[in-house]
């Protein structure tokens, strides 16, 4: 997995293994990826990114006591930023801060998509690799838009090609056990999700 930056503020992110305490900022823990921490470049980027967005993070202190309350936090992974809040009244103040912060992250830490290493993919799934760039869409809304625009025949061909391999995809994903999924595996998961949804539409 190649990513320029990934960390969590205030609470660990379990699915991606961002669970090692890295430092404290205004009485709040910053967590980094256990998977990526041996990577020197990753560590440098995390430090640099936190320094760059520190002032924005402090502004999320809506409760005026510490950076984020219980069950509140921020998760940065590549260019994706997720913010967990407790109060609905905080939504727009938080979004306004995010809108200032996002360009800083996007400009300095752009996404670096991996070239998929076919050797690391189970042989029976390798013929699906060409589908990943177009159809492995993790965002629900984007996936729906893509499906709505696609021709019915195209979707039928996609289902016919991928559906017989869902068990193999599942087995591949399970092979990671408690370890975080690789970027390629995440793409296979998104592809499988799409095909399951298409099957449900029938």
């Amino acid at each position: 997995m190649k990513t320029s930056v990934a960390f969590a503020v205030n609470m660990p992110e379990k699915e991606c293994g961002i669970n090692i305490k890295y430092c404290r900022l205004s009485n709040t823990n910053i967590y980094i990826s256990s998977y990526l921490s041996p990577d020197k470049v990753y560590m440098e980027n995390v430090g640099k990114c936190i320094e760059m967005i520190k002032e924005y993070l402090l502004r999320f202190d809506f409760q005026r006591s510490f950076l984020f309350g219980a069950n509140g936090g921020l998760f940065v992974f590549c260019n994706c930023v997720e913010l967990a809040l407790r109060e609905s009244s905080e939504i727009f103040p938080a979004i306004d801060i995010l809108l200032e912060m996002l360009p800083v992250i996007e400009e300095n830490f752009p996404d670096k998509p991996d070239d998929i290493d076919a050797d690391a993919i189970p042989e029976e799934l390798r013929d699906l690799i060409p589908l990943l760039n177009e159809w492995a869409i993790s965002d629900d809304q984007e996936r729906e838009e893509k499906v709505d625009k696609a021709a019915k025949a195209t979707l039928t061909r996609l289902v016919n090609r991928v559906a017989p391999k869902l068990d193999a995809i599942n087995k591949y994903l399970d092979s990671f056990g408690d370890e975080p999924l690789s970027e390629a595996a995440t793409m296979f998961a998104s592809l499988a999700e799409l095909v399951c949804e298409l099957q449900l539409r029938k």
Binding site: L99, D140, Q141
Partner: peptide, 23 residues
Amino acid sequence: DMFVFKYKDRRFHIYLYDDYICI
């Protein structure tokens, strides 16, 4: 439950979980 909306030319998703809101 998910909300999707555009605000200042960006698209946001809000998910509602048991004890927090995720943007």
